[in-house]
């Protein structure tokens, strides 16, 4: 199978939770109105008419984003109890809590499109919905916490900054707040890596090792190359997305290389070199087979991450049931009184 077809398969699979409504709600007049609204850069709000595919695309994207925040709590949460200073522990705990908060805003934004959180969680737990593949990599050393903040959050911000201007109002507004917190996280991650890169020999090695392991997966976070990204065209047409995968990836590299040089670390890419003509770096090809393996469930931690989420949800079932039973009893008593 060609890579291109594989991507189609994967993304089609991801969208499966939503009933295919192709052409079900076509209304040429309304579509004209909708397109004009987008042209004027007006926000689309929950009660506005919108094409079904627009709604479907948003539910998929926002819920994937929400799931990514929640699953993203796991690799970082892995180090909270082992953070090596009180300050580092507070910063990490607050950061992981922020990610949970982002998940909450995003689930709520998705709910404005007419889907319930239970449905979305069910899709995550049954493997129908995806989350950012980056969180299927393990955090092996403390340096990974710095690397995740600096590189992974840095890459995420590239995507998210443009989403502050995305056409769907509730999503755009959630992203404004999320971006503020994410850029704070990125600075904290960079600070943490600085401590290591300018620290003892063991700390430096730890930082280099983390960079070696996180560099390529981070570049893959921007998604397939534009030629192989089937969902991008619509996303750009609908002004959900405003820049392409390749543009964002290039910008991230240009921005990050000087930071790596400052830290005295080495980029694990022998093909990396400055290209005067394009005013940016040329770089090697990510291992797209690895990307496909991880996205299809065969990354180092896919099973563990999903299991952790399912276990937490199942383990919390009696807690939620108790809360509901108690609330019902209270309501009955109030009614009786």
């Amino acid at each position: 199978m060609k890579n291109h077809d594989k991507y189609h398969l994967i993304f089609a699979y991801e969208s499966r939770i939503f009933v295919a409504m192709e052409n079900a709600n076509t209304n040429p007049k309304m579509e004209e109105w909708f397109d004009a609204k987008l042209q004027k850069n007006e926000m689309v709000e929950p009660k506005d008419w919108m094409p079904d595919n627009y709604r479907k695309h948003l539910i998929r994207q926002i819920s994937q984003h929400a799931h990514s925040e929640i699953v993203g709590m796991l690799p970082e949460g892995n180090w909270i109890t082992r953070a090596p200073s009180l300050r580092a522990k507070i910063v990490l705990l607050a950061k992981v809590q922020d990610e949970g908060g982002h998940g909450l805003y995003l689930y709520t934004a998705a709910e404005t499109l007419g889907v319930s959180r239970d449905e979305l969680l069910d899709a995550l737990h049954t493997g129908k919905a995806k989350y950012s593949s980056i969180f299927n990599y393990p955090t092996l050393t403390w340096a990974d916490i710095g690397a995740v903040g600096w590189l992974v959050d840095g890459a995420a911000i590239m995507n998210q900054v443009m989403l502050q201007r995305t056409s769907y109002g509730p999503y755009a507004r959630a992203m404004v707040r999320i971006c503020k917190e994410e850029s704070f996280h990125q600075r904290q991650g960079y600070e943490s890596i600085c401590h290591l890169a300018f620290g003892t020999e063991e700390q430096k090695q730890m930082a280099q090792d983390a960079l070696n392991r996180w560099w390529w997966p981070t570049l893959m976070m921007f998604g397939p190359t534009d030629a192989n990204s089937p969902n991008s065209a619509n996303a750009i047409k609908w002004k959900i997305k405003r820049e392409s995968n390749d543009q964002l990836r290039q910008r991230f590299i240009n921005q990050t290389i000087p930071q790596i040089e400052y830290l005295g670390l080495t980029v694990p890419d022998p093909d990396l070199k400055w290209n005067e003509e394009k005013n940016g770096y040329d770089f090697g090809t990510p291992n797209w087979d690895e990307f496909m393996a991880v996205i299809s469930g065969n990354g180092p931690c896919n099973k563990e991450r999903l299991k952790a989420r399912v276990d937490a949800h199942k383990g919390g079932e009696w807690v939620r049931a108790a809360a509901k039973a108690h609330a019902d009893k209270k309501r009955e008593m109030e009614f009786a009184a």
Binding site: V96, G100, A308
Partner: peptide
């Protein structure tokens, strides 16, 4: 953290 019975 990350394993609570529900998000809130």
């Amino acid at each position: 953290t990350g394993h609570g019975p529900f998000l809130e």
